[in-house]
Structure formats: structure tokens, C-alpha cells
Design a protein around this nucleic acid. Structure first.
Lengths: 222, 222, 222, 222
DNA sequence: GATGAATGAGTTTTCATTCAT
DNA sequence: TATGAATGAAAACTCATTCAT
């Protein structure tokens, strides 16, 4: 077995362990148990557990960045819709839920872990640049009304991330749905030029204001 | 020492330990060290560390809820501004930063800890109800335009929480500032009836759309 | 059980483990096994294994220093004889052999362990000062011929220590015996004033020179 | 690479590792790191680490024995002086210090390692025989006064070894210097026939007795 | 000959928890 | 109430050794 396939196996096992048990219970043994290798091998491939976890964080962020990049060839409006979908994932999709849960755990360590914070910042840079690029491309293409891409990007990311965080921590789908509706309405009302349609979202005048959308029926919110 | 004062001392020590070292390094010893009592006493007052931490989480959430309640007697618009301020805290305020960091750590455990999730939901209920009440009161008072309070509350909370989470994890103040500006603009444009002023926020037509506000000069965003 | 008796038990167990297995195999487990306590208790009483071993070294050196001091009230010549006997111990005395073996092991670590070296130096200071005091007292009392106490002390200690080291490492008693004879002769010939007798040693004109003493019959030397 | 050159490379690497890190930290990896070969190769050439170290001890002792032999063609008095110099090495000579430090470490294992003790005895035999031969040759040549070569050899070796051991463990050069002076004086007074000069040492009436030599100015002794 | 990958047994250390006092 | 002493279980990490290639 090559070094690479072993490392890949370890990364996958770390992913599984993290999703199943959480960061606090992420032990070398828990990782090795999800491998057909021994615990000592982890330390053959990585200098320390800290090193392994940092590598895993890189591995996660790379996947994240790839996703963000993937849509590059789409036209701005579709690309924006894809971007939103990536954040407002389907909570019944176990795999994505697992991914975002693992991410949240590692992100929550960042205030106590400089290396993690550095890694997160690199990823945040890419994320913001991508969204700003989408917005600027849309402006140029005449699909969007005039606006400040930087401010819009920050606000949009905050709302999307907040919805996801609340869904993950509360187990309440309502945030995903209401933010999706709100963002769609917002985009529809404010961002899109009159003759442009936004795929996947609602079309009513929802948003921070506007009361005509129906209730969402989320499992247990409220 | 009475049972109550001992428990209070332990809660405070837990708070300090959690802020200084993070959840992962939160040991019984670390808590006892911030007390003038012994480690064994922790287990006299609490059945287990898990029990202690759950109690602490209640303690934290109570403080949170109190804050949310505090503004009850203000008129809706001021109350909304206070609400927003609570979320978009001053990142130079070490005490609040510590509070929110500790909270984030515990929230990130929720996907693996049902008890935590239950506690969080109770708190989320109170939070949403409060905001919806503010919005409904404002509607009644004629201070706000027509809108759906539930949807607006969810969207607003998501954006505010997202900004805070990103500030905490990235150490980037920009999110706080841009979301504050965006929310203020949104509220100004969409929510407030024409003759009502919103305290503390900007008044430009910022938000998801509208490009005329000046740059915010955040230290390192972008 | 008081802290002190536990610590004493640990020191004794360390002594036994060191004698039986040597420094290289001195593990926390090996120490705990010679105790009726658990391995974890070692780390309750000492910060680390290194700390424990350094404490043990202090413990050993204290015993050594006590021995050196013990003879304080004897007259110089008897005191010198006692001093020599302490070094040139009876190799059939298992307890003393164990003590010196343990000491040698720890001493051999000193070139790689500053703390050990510091401790050794303190002990060496005491040793030399004691011997010099004996020699000076003897000079004053007129029991010894004129000589340089410092030089004599260094030479004597080197010879005695060397004999002991070779006995321990080679298992050859001959060194102890021949150095005893040599030192006795030397002292007799050179150090003692004419009318003073030296207890315990030979009286012939042995030493670096002088061939009339009988063979010593050591088991296998030569 | 031939078997022999590989083994030689390993021996050299072991030497370096032992000098730099000490016996306790002498790992197969540490040895391999000082080689341009892999760790596994060590076990191709040696059955076990124990076997390797024993071989290394042979290797060391051979060097030692060679040194002792080297002087064979010199006349007795010069040969004795060379012998003394070999023991009372220059403590600023890093290479020799390293050699003697490594030796001391291995010697200190001997009480717990029969194989080591056997090896040491063989070397001790050679050493004593050599010194006795020197002394007998000197007697025959009329350079030395009458004395017992065996007793003198044992005494001299003990003093020289003791000085070296104390220098190595205490880092105190004084022992080397004072023993050198003492031995020189002793030899001058007692061993050398009247018309023979001893090279390299002092000529005063130093030794166990005789107070007229000047102080040695060692860095930190006393 | 030579090595990278792999591992089992063991090492030091940590920590929640218990208990006699 | 309060604690010092004690511990079992498990953590991260090490290391001599093996083996397929």
C-alpha cells in the first residue's frame, strides 16, 4: 500500500470518527478502529495527533474549496443559486450533514487554535472572493441591479452560515428553509434585474419584509 | 458555605476555565483551580462532570435569556436595536467575546449531545419568541411596514448569528461590521415605516442591494 | 497514609527497582510493582518520572552525605579509616553493593543530565571538604606529617572511587583489596607520624612501591 | 555495499548516537539517522539491538586495546607516561571526552548485563597485563625501584580511572589535574630509580604527602 | 542487500471518579 | 461539607522488530 492510499484511508477514518463521536472524543484509537490498520501506523504517517488533525482540516477545506470552485463555468445567476444550495444543504442528506457537522466542530476550536484559524482564513478568503466574483460577473452581465458586491457577499455569507449553524446545533430545519426563502425573495426583489429569473428559490416578495409566503411546516420549530 | 454559593462559585470557575482553555481542555482540575475548594468537592455537588457541564450550560443560557428579556420595557424600535447590539457585540469587549466563545464551543457539542440540544432549543424558542414579539409589537404600533414576523425573525437571527460565528472563528471583525451595516440598511429600507428612525445603525440604502455606502475599513477582511 | 510515608515507600521501591533492573529499565510500572500502590499514584506525588528520579537521587545523596558526616566525632586517624572503609565496602555486603550500583548508574547519566550533575557536585563538595577537614585536623593534632590536604584528598578520593567503580563494573574484588592495601601502606609510610597507628589496614611498606605483601587471593583478578 | 563496510558504518553511527544522546536514548532510529541507510538494515546485519550494542562494545574495547598496545615499542618509562596520558586525557579534547563518556555509560550497564561484564573483564585483563609488563620491564631495565608490579598496577589503574570517572560525571577537571600531579610525584619519589626522569609529569615531591606544590588553578574544583 | 510500511507491547501521563476521614 | 489520597481506564506516543517487495 502506498503512502498516499494509507493517508487517504486515515483521512476517511478521521472523517467518520469525527462525525460519529465529535472532536472531543476523537482519539487515535477511534480513528484506527475505522481503518484496517493499527493505531501505531497513525504516528508513522503523522508526527502527532495534532499534526494529523491539522492535515485532516486541510483535507476538509480542500473539499470545501473544490465545491466552491466547481460551478465556475455557470452563468452568474445559476452560479449564485448553486452557491446558496451548497450552504443551505438538504438536512436529510446524511453525508452533507456529517460534513458540515465535522466542519462546525473544527471551526469551534479555532478560537483556541491558531493553526486552525489560519486555515479557516485561507478558506474564507476563497469563499468571499468567489461570491464577490459571482456578483461582479452578474453586474457586468446586466443580470443584477447596482450594488456593493463586498457588502452583499459578507451579508449573504453570514446569513447562509448562520442558518446552517442553527440547523446543525438545534436540529431545526426551519432556519434553512426560512433563510432560503428570505434570500430568494431578497435576491428576487433587490438583486435581480427585472427580466431575470432565479432558479430554485421562491418568487414571492418574501425577505425581511413581506408577509405572503405560506408557513414552512418545519418539524418542530416553534 | 451553603450549597448555593458553592454551586455559584463552581459555575463561575467553569466559565473562566472554559473561556481560558476551551471545552476540550476543560478538566475537573482546571475548574477546581479557579475555586478555593478542592476537586473532590465538584463531585459532591454534581453527580458527574457531564452533569456539571450541563448545569453550566443552563447557567449560561439563563444569562443569555435574561439579557434577551431585559429590554422588555423599551419601545419596539429601540428594543430591536438592543437586540441587534447584543448579537453584534463589540469584538474588543473581552468579556463578551469570552462569553460567545464559550457558547460556541458548547453549541458545537450539541450535534453529539442530546441534552445540550434540548437546552439550546429551549433557548432558541425564547429568542425567536422575543424577536417575533418585538416585530409584532412594532407592527401594532405602526412603526414597521407589513411583513411576516416569523420569517423576518428567522432571517435576522441567522444573519446575526452567522456574523458572530464568523467573527469568533475567523477573528475577522468585518463580518460584524458589514452585517451591522447591512441589517441597518435593510431595516431602514424595508422594515421601518417612513417616519421612524433606527438608533445606532447607518441610514444609507445599504443591504443586499445598493452600492452607495462607503467602505468600512475593517482590519483584514478581504 | 501521610504524604511522607507514601513518598518514602516510593523512594524505597525506586531503590529496589533500580538495583534489580538498572536505570535503563527503570519504569514507572517497575517502581509501582514494588509498592502496594498504583502506578498513577506516582504521578500524584511527583510531577513526572524525571522529577521522581531527581528526588530519588537527592534521597540517595542525602544518605551518602549522612554517612560521610556520621564519623564527625572520631579522632582524625580513626575518622580517616572509617572514610576509607565507606568507599572500600565489603563486596559481600549486598546492601552496600546495591547502593553503590544504583549510584553508579545515576552518576553515569550525569554527562547527559545537568540536574544530576548539579546534585553530584553538591555532594562532591561535601565529600572533599570532609576529607580535607580530616586531614587538616590530623595535621593540627600532629598525627600526620606535613602535606597538602587538598591534593591528598583529591588523589585519595580518585583512588578509592576508581577501586569501587572497577569492582562494581568488573565484579572483581581485587581492586578493592589492592587499593585498600596500597592506601594503607601509603598512609602508613607517608602520612602517619611515626608513633601513630592506622586501624584496619596493613602495616607493611606496601603502596605504589614495596613488594613484600602476600597475595590477596581474589577470586579471579589477573 | 559489503557486509563489512556496512557494519563499520553502523558502528560509527552508534558511536555518534551514543555520544550525542547517551545510552538511555540510544534507539535504532537514532543510529540509522546517522547512516545513509534505513533502520531496517540494522536488523539485517544484527540479530537484535542488544546484539548490535554488544558488537559495538567489542568495537569500542578493541579501539581501547589498540591504544594500550600501541606504545609497545617504547622504553618502559616513556610507555608508562603514555599510559598515564591515555587515562588522564585532555578534557578539552571533545573526541576523547566523547569516547570516555560512551564507555562509562556502557560500563555502568555491566552490573546488569553479564555479556558486558565479560567483555569488560577481557579488556581489564589486557590493561593490567600491559601495565604490569611495563612495570616489570622497567624493573628489569633498572629504571624502577623494587616493588610489586601487580599491586602497583591495580593501585595506579584505580586512581587513574577514578580521576576520569569523577571528571566525566562532575565535569570537574580538578581531579584529572590533581591525580596527574599526585601520580607524577609518586612515581618520581617512589618508583623511579634516582637517575631516571619521568616525562610529562611534575617532579616535585607531591603525592599523598608533601605540601610544597603550587595550586593548580582548576576552574571550579572546590 | 535494502527499504517502507506496518505492528504489538510497552511507556509516560492524564483524568474522572471514589472513599476514608 | 470538605479534602487528600488513591486508582482504573484510557490517552498519546515510542520502539524494536518483522516482512513483502
Amino acid at each position: 500500500m502506498t503512502d498516499d492510499s494509507a493517508r487517504e484511508e486515515i483521512m476517511t477514518a478521521t472523517y467518520e470518527a469525527l462525525c460519529e463521536q465529535g472532536y472531543t472524543d476523537l482519539t487515535a484509537q477511534a480513528i484506527a478502529d475505522r481503518t484496517d490498520k493499527s493505531k501505531s501506523l497513525l504516528f508513522y504517517h503523522y508526527d502527532s495527533k495534532e499534526d494529523l488533525v491539522a492535515s485532516f482540516f486541510d483535507f476538509l477545506l480542500e473539499q470545501f474549496d473544490e465545491r466552491v470552485e466547481e460551478s465556475r463555468e455557470l452563468p452568474p445567476v445559476e452560479r449564485l443559486a448553486t452557491f446558496v444550495d451548497w450552504f443551505l444543504y438538504d438536512p436529510d442528506d446524511a453525508e452533507r450533514t456529517a460534513f458540515h457537522t465535522a466542519m462546525l466542530e473544527l471551526r469551534a476550536q479555532a478560537p483556541h487554535n491558531d493553526r486552525f484559524q489560519q486555515q479557516l482564513r485561507r478558506s474564507d478568503d476563497a469563499l468571499r472572493e468567489t461570491l464577490e466574483e459571482i456578483l461582479r460577473d452578474g453586474l457586468e452581465a446586466g443580470a443584477f441591479h447596482e450594488h456593493d458586491p463586498e457588502a452583499t457577499a459578507a451579508l449573504l455569507i453570514a446569513a447562509l452560515d448562520g442558518a446552517r449553524v442553527r440547523q446543525l446545533t438545534l436540529g431545526r430545519d426551519a432556519y434553512l428553509e426560512e433563510v432560503r426563502a428570505g434570500v430568494a425573495a431578497e435576491v428576487f426583489d433587490e438583486l435581480l434585474a427585472e427580466d431575470v429569473a432565479f432558479p430554485g428559490g421562491g418568487e414571492g416578495a418574501a425577505g425581511l419584509v413581506g408577509g405572503d409566503e405560506s408557513d414552512d411546516g418545519s418539524q418542530e420549530a416553534r
